[in-house]
Amino acid sequence: MSEHVASGPPHVHHMDAKTAYSAAKLGMWLFLATEILLFGGLFAGFAIYRWQYLSEFAHASEHLNWKMGALNTAILIFSSYAVVLGVDAAQHGENKKVKKWMLVTLLCGCGFLVVKFFEYKSKYEHGLFPGTVDHITNIAFNSPEFNAQYKMFFGLYYCMTGLHALHVIIGMGIIFWIYLLAKKNRFSTDYYTPVEVGGLYWHLIDLIWIYLFPLLYLVG
């Protein structure tokens, strides 16, 4: 949504630059609130069933690779740091630095997705996949130990991390767009709204992962 606040006055100069900046920030904070509520529904659902099926969820969680999760956590935290540096650079009007840090953030995002891809792939190969998995023969789901609650754990795992990964992809789109703006030298000490609100969005993505990681990987 930040595109719309940032690309300057649209059809009339209907607000001054200062109002536009504070409006964009308020808008983004509200949007972040809706995002948190969106994930909040998933967290609530997870909490309820985690409580109800304590040991099943704990066992299912052991099938996740916490090392990969930890690696991704580190990548995202570093990317947030890069964004902070990018925002700082934008506030000083240093477009070149903005470009650099946005590129670093993009690389982090790619790295995150690559790690995620390998995690999903390995889960899929082990048959840890929700839904109708009859076509996979060597699946653990067929063993009596893997009852419906295991499926539910992995169902929630895929929903939560999948929705999060989708947000990473959208976030990368926004970061890339900021990169393009920086390339055109659009930022100055007077105008850096997109970097600031785009950065807020990226921090949220990071924050959600920081909650997802212990909840899914470390519950056991």
């Binding site: 929700p130 419906a148 499926k151 169902g155 929630l156 929903c159």
Partner: peptide, 11 residues
Amino acid sequence: FGVGIFNPDLG
């Protein structure tokens, strides 16, 4: 995908 959180058959 048959996640199961609203489906009594899956708990």
